[in-house]
Amino acid sequence: MTGCVTHGWWSLSSFVPNRLETAVARANRKSFALTTSCLSDRAVTIAASDNNYGSKQVISVTPRVYDYLLTNVREPPVLRELREETATMHGSQMQVSPDQAQLLAMLVQILGAKRCIEVGVYTGYSSLAVALVLPDLGILVACERDKHSLEVAKRYYDRAGVSHKVDARHGLAADTLTSMLENGEGCSYDFAFVDAEKRMYQEYFELLLKLVRTGGVIVIDNVLWHGKVADPLVDDKKTESIRSFNRALMDDERVSISMVSVGDGMTICRKR
């Protein structure tokens, strides 16, 4: 193979053909340079030459390394079946990766979460991963506007025996979240995951911040947006929206944050 997908740096996720610089390197050429040797599917490193970064070398996740990573993900059979069915559907790229779902499930377990929200379900891979680790009396409010996708998700909730833990809501997520607040559910949820319309991220976040308790966690997907956020030549509305959202989170003292490069980038926010 002549390129690699770079996920291994905390804020970088972009395609690097041959010896071309990454989008981050182009954007910051004056401050530091990144070098790469993605000439095959072998694992390579990317190094920041600026001494302020300690010449830190981080791994570039080539297809071979990513395949290895996936062999070390504990994926329940029902999740694998859902992933394989979704792969045959239109829009299958919207499904989270197995390593993302594993991280979400672990966060729920570490948090001891009992009440969760998901904004953007698609066919249910991430919500099913969360529901599987929720206690029997736990609840996940799953918001999805596409009825067909939600029906697939509900079929797998049934197959996995977790339907009693999932409150599937068909409709616009903003309306559902607003209704939950009006019903007096503010500050009563432990965990939320957002993977929906990118231009709505700030609105979703503000609503979820009212629904999630202090010490609770909100995870936002696609914050690196295929590396586009790091490329100054990209200025479409979705990319600009995510950039703006990322900047706002950096300055938001209501939460502690950690941006990680799992999948297409996720920001984990803990409500203070």
Rank of each mutant, 00 (worst) to 15 (best):
W9T: 14
W9N: 10
P17N: 10
R19H: 08
L20I: 08
E21Q: 05
E21P: 06
A25Y: 00
R26L: 14
K30N: 15
K30G: 09
L34W: 01
T35H: 06
T36K: 15
T36F: 13
S37W: 00
C38K: 04
C38S: 05
S40G: 09
A43G: 06
V44P: 11
I46K: 15
I46A: 09
D50W: 13
N52P: 04
I59M: 05
I59G: 01
V61K: 02
D67E: 10
T71I: 08
L82M: 12
L82Y: 02
E84W: 15
T86R: 08
T88D: 02
H90T: 06
S97C: 07
S97K: 04
P98K: 01
D99N: 13
D99H: 04
A101E: 00
A105D: 15
M106Q: 12
L107S: 10
L107G: 14
L107I: 07
I110T: 06
L111A: 06
C116K: 03
C116S: 05
E118M: 12
V119S: 06
V121K: 01
T123P: 03
G124L: 02
S127L: 15
L128D: 09
A129Y: 13
A131H: 09
A131G: 05
L132E: 02
V133D: 01
V133N: 01
L134V: 05
L134R: 14
P135I: 11
L137M: 07
I139M: 09
V141H: 00
A142N: 02
A142P: 09
E144T: 04
D146E: 09
H148G: 07
L150C: 08
E151Y: 06
Y156T: 14
Y157K: 00
D158P: 07
A160F: 12
G161Y: 13
V162R: 02
V162S: 03
S163K: 03
D167T: 02
A168P: 07
H170M: 04
H170F: 11
L172N: 01
L177K: 03
L177C: 08
L181P: 14
L181A: 15
E182L: 01
E185K: 10
E185G: 03
S188I: 06
D190Q: 04
A192R: 03
F193T: 07
F193Q: 09
A196T: 08
A196N: 04
K198Y: 11
Y201L: 07
Q202W: 04
E203N: 05
E203F: 07
E206S: 12
L207Y: 05
L208S: 04
L208K: 00
L208P: 00
L209D: 13
L211S: 09
L211A: 12
V212G: 12
I218V: 01
V219D: 00
D221C: 14
N222A: 12
G227C: 02
V229A: 10
A230Y: 06
D231E: 15
D231H: 11
L233H: 09
D235E: 07
D236Y: 15
D236F: 08
K238Y: 12
S244M: 11
A248R: 11
A248K: 08
L249A: 12
L249C: 11
D252E: 15
E253K: 08
E253F: 03
E253Y: 11
V255N: 09
I257H: 02
S261T: 12
S261W: 04
S261P: 09
V262K: 00
R272P: 07
